[in-house]
Computed example of a mutant assay.
Amino acid sequence: MGTVFSLDVRGGAPDRIAAAVEGAAAWLRHVDEVFSTYRPGSQISRLAAGGLTLARCSAEVREVHRLCEDARRRTGGWFSAAYAGGFDPTGLVKGWAVERAAEMLRSAGADAVCVNGGGDVQTFGGPWRIGVADPLRPGAVAAVVRAGEGAGGTAHGDGLAVATSGPAERGGHVLDPHTGRPPRDALASLTVVSRTLTEADVAATAAYAMGARARGWLAAEPGTEAFAVTAGGRTWHTAGFGALADPPAGRTPGR
């Protein structure tokens, strides 16, 4: 998927956990083979080229297609997997894959799990501290999300996920699906905290595409909190974010 993954596991029977780590790594490689838009032989590439129909795709592709349609409806069209008349689930599939890998490790008996896919993180148990990269100060952290015991775990159940969208790492890859252009009033970065990484990834992508509209939409989303850094270096966050995170350092809160 063109990024780096890390798996951090605590507790559990060593043999079971070792096998589960191998299984999770194999799963992530499999997802890349099936969903990559850069591999000509992947099902997504063949689907885009017209050499494969959705009905003949694997159950995983059909599941992701359904999730993308659900996300489109949930976000009022601000999340879209339609690209040049084809299907590109890139905005959802990494979060979905990382979430599934973390579930595999938890099911193997791990006490605490943290799977990080290119900065998007799914945790179970804890405690964990998840740094949010500062998009305007390379190497610095803009905020730290606390996951697990004593970090708002009751509100989010046993799992907590953090996803960030913005141009700092990959350039301006998120477009307004209504115009095909970068969002107006684009943020430097937008981080979403939710129960699952599939949900957080979709919300971060859609809200970043919304630009100035994002704050109100995120505030109304159940079970979702967010933290943003504006292009001018100010910050804002939703009402419940402060209960999940340490205060941002070296940044000026905005309104």
Rank of each mutant, 00 (worst) to 15 (best):
A249Q: 08
G150I: 06
E169H: 03
A243G: 11
P182T: 07
T198F: 04
A212Y: 03
G150T: 08
P183N: 00
R213P: 12
V144A: 09
L244Q: 11
F227L: 00
L197V: 15
P222D: 04
R234W: 04
G223P: 03
V144D: 05
G152L: 08
W217Y: 12
G233D: 01
D185A: 07
F227V: 00
L197D: 12
S189A: 15
V192C: 09
L160P: 01
G242P: 00
A147C: 15
A147L: 13
H156G: 03
A203K: 12
T179V: 10
V229A: 06
A220S: 01
E199W: 06
H237C: 14
S165Q: 09
G216N: 13
A200T: 15
G240M: 13
T238H: 08
P247M: 03
G211T: 05
E199H: 05
A219I: 01
P183Y: 03
R181E: 13
T179S: 15
T164N: 13
H173I: 09
A204Y: 03
A147R: 14
A219H: 02
V162N: 09
G150K: 07
R234L: 03
F227C: 01
G171L: 11
A249N: 05
Y208H: 06
P183A: 02
T235V: 05
S189I: 12
A204R: 07
G150A: 04
A214N: 11
A239K: 13
S194H: 13
A142D: 01
G232C: 11
P167D: 06
G233V: 01
A142W: 01
L160R: 06
A151P: 10
A231G: 04
V141S: 08
L197Q: 15
V174F: 07
T224W: 06
A188M: 04
G211P: 04
A140W: 15
L190W: 07
V174D: 08
S189D: 08
A206G: 15
E221R: 13
L218M: 12
G211S: 04
V193I: 07
E225Y: 01
R213I: 13
G172W: 11
G152S: 07
P177V: 09
D201M: 03
V202D: 04
T205I: 12
F241D: 05
V144W: 11
P222H: 00
Y208D: 02
E169A: 02
T205R: 12
A219L: 00
G216I: 10
G166T: 07
A245R: 10
G240P: 09
P247L: 02
A206R: 13
A249R: 12
H237S: 11
D176P: 03
R146W: 04
G171P: 12
V145Q: 08
R234Y: 05
V145M: 13
A220F: 02
G152N: 08
G171M: 14
A143E: 07
A188K: 02
A206E: 11
M210W: 12
A212G: 05
R146Q: 08
